[in-house]
Design a protein around this nucleic acid. Structure first.
Length: 508
RNA sequence: GGGGGUGUAGCUCAGUGGUAGAGCACCUGCCUUUUAAGCAGGGUGUCGAUGGUUCGAUCCCAUCCACCCUCACCA
């Protein structure tokens, strides 16, 4: 049956209800218990014959002569209700007959167990709390079409409890991290999303324009430079849960709008940050699951510290037998070529080493592994390594072959920072759309003096994928970015407008 | 951007060069402890969009749109 027909049938029920002087959209319902709570305490509530007031959405409904069985669901759980004519009376019975799957009702009653053993609410009274006009997806096959699931997340959430569970866990994970950082004296701050200049990451930004100020602005790609200014200002530990925006491709690991946590810790270096990050992840996993080993796809990931620590160049040597430590750019390029890694974008020694590493090592890092000491050319905001100035004190944490965090001993020498920006400027001129522009005010801030500082950024969406065993970023973001589509759907509003038109014509 | 795939009823899916089907949902009737309730009956769709080929296209061809997978590039 076409959607318009199904909606019309329900619309007619609404009209009928109004004629019966029943408001299909009343204002409130006094709920005494959640359904999950009722199921948890079923035995004692049933014994006492406590009168309960529960509310939820009708998911299943079947008529049995002079009685009904139905299942309804609230945020916590689903349970069966039983309603019979000689308990509720003819009027209420007929009203229940008008209800559809998807309607939201409030029920008052007591508990019992059916012959077949199902815990059930015997309904004494009920009220319609909201009429549903749109039919629900199939009660067994559910809603599987991914496009509809993402475009109409509400339908996905109504019909797929496991999807609801992922987002409950997402919320818990963020809460656990927030509590951890706050209890470790990190100050939660807010910095601009709308920025006159972007920086703090390698990415193409979204650009916009402020009319009154007549200036171009960018949606932030990272909040790093603003947080470091706060370290200059004298806060020792700061962090932010931030939405960042990057104008790049979309795939199972990338959404243009995504979430990160960045934190900065004065007087610490990248090794202190590694210990902190390790402990934060350990704590989060354990709080969530009560254990350290959790499944991710075909793997079992072990979050019990200490995590493995390798250097970028060392891990390349481990995989390929080739040591890039003392190679010049030309030697590195030749060595990379022998390994099958080449390309015009490999314009300096650092990019060559990074490319070889990505090609040969990244895929192999399943268990949590810190990869440390990145080349200076690809790390414009990190402090040079204390033992080798061709490298920086920087690590990324890899889990299940995915980057799960990025940290440095922060560069706090304003002169060195200026030189790095100038280096990046050359890259921009050479056509690198992801190189970082010179931020004069940031150099100015550093010139006031920033203490030695360790900093960390990690993508929340990818971390949540890892901790909830989801394999596409769209399954951990409630409203992932979708392309507009122009054809192929009949919006409900169009159907309703037609119905209203018909009703008007009929009554006049 | 390259390659591959998908798009048919509200949902999940079959199917066909001669105007389309199933299950669920929906409507009517029976049934006062059912549960994928059951039984009897009923209705149905711009077959993603636009062109083309054809006597005739949902099916073949072209273009476009959306979605998925994959490679490349990046978080």
């Amino acid at each position: 049956m076409p959607l318009a027909e199904l909606i019309k049938i329900r619309r007619e029920k609404v009209i009928k209800l109004r004629q019966m002087n029943i408001n299909p959209y009343p204002y409130r319902y006094e709920v005494s218990h959640g359904i999950g709570e009722v199921l948890d305490q079923f035995t004692s509530l049933a014994e006492k014959q406590t009168a309960l007031r529960l509310a939820g959405r009708i998911m299943l409904k079947r008529k049995m002569g002079k009685s009904f069985f139905a299942h309804f669901r609230d945020a916590s759980q689903m349970m069966q209700i039983y309603l019979k004519l000689d308990v509720v009376g003819q009027e209420a019975f007929d009203l229940f007959n008008l209800l559809d799957l998807g309607d939201i009702i409030g029920c008052e009653g007591t508990l019992f167990i059916t012959k077949t053993g199902e815990r059930t609410l015997r309904v004494h009274k009920f009220e319609l709390l909201a009429k549903s006009l749109h039919p629900l997806p199939d009660k067994h096959a559910g809603l599987t079409d991914v496009e509809t699931r993402y475009r109409r997340r509400y339908a996905d959430l109504i019909i797929n409890p496991e999807v609801r569970e992922v987002f409950i866990r997402r919320s818990r994970i963020i809460q656990i991290i927030r509590e951890y950082l706050n209890s470790h004296d990190f100050l939660e701050v807010e910095t601009p999303i709308l920025q006159p200049l972007y920086g703090g990451g390698m990415a193409r930004p979204f650009t916009t324009h402020h009319e009154k100020l007549d200036m171009n602005m960018y949606l932030r790609i990272a909040d790093e430079l603003y947080l470091k200014r706060l370290i200059v200002g004298g806060y020792d530990k700061v962090w932010e849960y931030c939405k960042d925006f990057r104008n790049e491709g979309l795939d199972r690991l990338h959404n243009p709008e995504f979430s990160m946590i960045e934190l900065y810790w004065a007087y610490a270096d990248y090794k202190d940050i590694a210990r902190l990050f390790e402990d934060l992840l350990r704590h989060t996993v354990f709080t969530l699951y009560g254990k350290y080993k959790i499944p991710y796809g075909e793997y079992e990931i072990d979050f019990e510290p200490p995590f493995q620590w390798v250097t970028m160049i060392g891990s390349i040597a481990g995989q390929t037998g080739i040591d890039f430590t003392d190679m010049s750019y030309e030697e590195a390029r030749a060595a990379a070529k022998k390994l099958g890694v080449e390309g015009t974008e490999l314009i300096n020694r650092g990019k060559v080493i990074e490319a070889v590493w990505e090609n040969k090592v990244e895929k192999t890092l399943i268990q949590p592994t810190f990869v440390a000491d990145f080349p200076v050319e690809i790390s414009p905001l990190a402090k040079k390594h204390r033992e080798d100035d061709r490298l920086t004190e920087r690590f990324e944490l890899f889990i299940a072959a995915q980057e799960t965090g990025n940290a440095f001993s922060e560069l706090n020498d304003p002169v060195d920072q200026l030189e790095r920006f100038l280096q990046q400027g050359k890259a921009i001129e050479a056509g690198d759309k992801e190189a970082q522009p010179l931020d004069d005010d940031f150099v100015t801030a550093l010139s006031y003096g920033m203490p030695p500082t360790g900093g960390l950024g990690f993508g929340i969406d990818r971390l949540i994928m890892l901790l909830t065993n989801q394999h596409t970023i769209r399954d951990v973001i409630l409203y992932p970015q979708m392309k507009d589509y122009k054809e192929g759907t009949v919006p409900v509003s169009k159907i309703l407008r037609q119905l209203l038109e018909e009703e008007k014509n009929k009554s006049s």
